[in-house]
Design a protein around this nucleic acid. Structure first.
Lengths: 157, 157
DNA sequence: TAAATCGTTTGTAGTTAGCAAACGATTACT
DNA sequence: AGTAATCGTTTGCTAACTACAAACGATTTA
């Protein structure tokens, strides 16, 4: 255990690289999906909703990391385009359950096809295998809070 | 080759996940490095500069994806803290060559240690190997434009 | 009945970033 | 030589995003 010398070596930290790369990706992505009437946050919300169907708005807010008051507007925009549906929860009628509609799923698929150019540009240095590996890691990392956990958080025993 | 059916399957697109994860990372990171007087953009700039020593400001601007007029203020803030140095290029005295100072390198190292908590939180679902793999992929992807290329872009033959 | 929760509305404030125009210094073109 | 272009810089404007707080009706819980 080199308890002292290890302090002189900088660890491998992904934070800056991740944010840096994501910035480029966000710019390119927004240009790619703009014709579909979507911005990055819509894309993220739809993507999260595809994995976490039936989340409550409070749960969605914590997952997305946005204020619940700001989430309202975001969901309104998506609901106007029939991409999502709000239903009252049968268990607790105060809550809204958010569901991805078929149109929403279709548009999300379209959007993902449209992202090809953006990803080719930003991930140019990665080959197909590496991109798949990156996708897997991202999928894993972002799935750290599955729907059940978030729902459990929102409604603690 | 299922040329038709493939159109019905959404490809694996990392864009949304990447931006989503980076959003969380940015929030946690800023909280972590705030005591050092740094924000995410400073962190990114310093990180890029560590790899691309001696870039001109124009090259840095394109690498960072920010306007050159806005880069001036960012570099001013870093220079005030003696983290970087601007020198006139000997080849073209219009240009400023940006260098990471020793203090800058030290502070960057400190900052990266401070990011431990942030990464532990955001990348909780990844083990050590996976985090290292992610770091490698990010390093590879962000290095798509090495200093020479950027410099070449800035001063085409 | 009283208190707490969920989604919602409204308003405020701060940060961020892009963009355009102009300038001095310097270099490149012809 | 003279003209045009480039680099960094300053200034000012603008739009977008987000956090945050306060309050409300509907509903659930104590």
């Amino acid at each position: 255990m080199s308890s002292l010398t290890i302090l002189n070596q900088a660890p491998h930290r992904s934070a800056a690289l991740l944010v840096h790369l994501a910035r480029h990706m966000r710019v390119r992505s927004e240009a790619a999906v703009a014709p579909l009437g979507l911005k990055a946050r819509h894309l993220i919300a739809l993507t999260v909703l595809r994995d976490q169907r039936g989340s409550t708005q409070a749960a969605l807010a914590t997952t997305l990391g946005v204020d619940r008051t700001n989430l309202v507007g975001l969901l309104n925009e998506l609901e106007c385009q029939k991409l999502i549906e709000r239903r009252r929860s049968s268990e607790d009628r105060r809550r809204h359950t958010v569901e991805l509609t078929d149109t929403g799923a279709e548009l999300l698929a379209k959007a993902e096809f449209a992202l090809a150019a953006a990803e080719d540009e930003v991930l140019a240095a990665l080959d197909r295998e590496q991109r798949e590996a990156l996708y897997g890691l991202l999928q894993l990392a972002t799935a750290e809070t599955p729907a059940s956990c978030v729902a459990a958080e929102a409604s603690p025993a």
